[in-house]
């Protein structure tokens, strides 16, 4: 027989979580690249009500991004080939940091490079920006010095970039993994050993769309990254694998669009979650997710979200 939980919706649920030195009001934060630099969402969302705020991926120099078309909708998801367009770390400091100073939520700066040296230089700069509480290293980028092999698909290259970046940083270091590998646990263990404080997975799944009217590929770049509800089962599988493979905390991301989705990832043992594509569909999504999780936990008689995290029945 199933336990019927007490309905206790007036119970205040403790939503705060500690993730490797980051104290989060709740485990909900945006996924990089779907939230701009934060200010874009102010009209629709209380930024101070988020667990953290994650910026668009930053690089050493401004990046113009890929030619258009850059996006294509597909069944229950979308493909993007934005090409990591961003204003660069220096303009970030000048134009975006002043706004972020007014937000009480911890700011996590996502960043990337096309060479090891670029990664190191950006990490150096991020370490010195006060408003940046933590950093998120995107290793789903091609290494131009090594024939464009993506850092995050080779355990040795991934470990190398993580350990080099680690040396410039005292702030909590999140390493974000690509799902486009045969065994994500191999990469996860490699970056853990190299000094990652937190592992975040997954980035987008490489895909393609074709237009039969024009007989062309839908994206100018050819391939793109699949995101949205379509990838949630893949993300759940990989988060489950990584949680079991490493001892550092894991942030789950991929296809989360509702409180139920978020609770699934937490149940598997993710300490926090990120919301990406769903922000594009509805800029108020994360607020609704926080409220929905609280309600679910209260109704399930759970007064602290940490009691839910990782409570999957074996």
């Amino acid at each position: 027989m199933r336990d019927i939980p007490e309905v206790a919706s007036d119970v205040a649920v403790k939503m705060a979580v500690e993730v490797a030195g980051l104290t989060l009001r709740n485990p909900v934060m945006p996924a990089s690249g779907t939230f701009g630099y934060g200010a874009e969402f102010e009209p629709y969302l209380n930024l101070d009500g988020l667990g953290a705020l994650v910026t668009k991926g930053l690089s050493l120099r401004p990046k113009a991004g890929n030619p258009t078309p850059r996006i294509a909708e597909c069944s229950c998801g979308m493909l993007n080939a934005i090409g990591l367009q961003n204003i660069g770390i220096d303009a970030f400091v000048e134009e975006k940091v002043p706004f972020l100073k007014g937000v009480s939520t911890p700011v996590i700066a996502n960043f990337f490079g096309n060479t090891l040296d670029e990664y190191i230089q950006v990490a150096d700069k991020l370490e010195k920006i006060d408003v940046v509480t933590g950093v998120e290293l995107n290793i789903s980028c091609p290494n131009v010095k090594r024939g464009g092999i993506v850092f995050g698909t080779d355990p040795a290259a991934a470990a190398k970039v993580v350990s080099e970046v680690r040396r410039c940083l005292t702030k909590p270091l999140i390493v974000k993994l690509t799902p486009n590998v045969t065994d994500i646990t191999v990469i996860a263990r490699a970056v853990e050993e190299a000094g990652a404080d937190i592992i975040c997975c997954i980035n987008t799944v490489t895909g393609m769309a074709v237009d039969i009217k024009s007989r062309r590929l839908s994206l100018a770049n050819g391939t793109g990254g699949l995101s949205g509800p379509a990838i949630k089962p893949i993300a759940l599988r990989m988060v489950h694998q990584v949680v079991n493979a490493v001892s550092v905390p894991v942030i789950g991301v991929g296809g989360i669009a509702s409180a139920e989705d978020a609770l699934e990832f937490l149940l598997l043992g993710a300490k926090a979650i990120q919301v990406g594509t769903a922000n594009l569909v509805n800029p108020g999504t994360m607020g609704e997710i926080v409220v929905g999780m609280e309600r679910f936990l209260a109704e399930s008689g759970i007064s602290d979200i940490n009691d839910w995290i990782g409570s999957l029945h074996g």
């Binding site: 701009g36 969402f41 113009a64 258009t68 996006i71 934005i82 922000n279 569909v281």
Partner: peptide
């Protein structure tokens, strides 16, 4: 008109080439 995902400047999916645009120095 452009393909749009968010409509609020968050995804950068909707860009068009600006006046200074060239293949070597893109400006969107």
């Amino acid at each position: 008109e452009a393909l749009m995902a968010c409509g609020i400047g968050a995804c950068l999916g909707c860009v068009v080439p600006g006046r200074e645009h060239s293949d070597d120095t893109p400006q969107y």
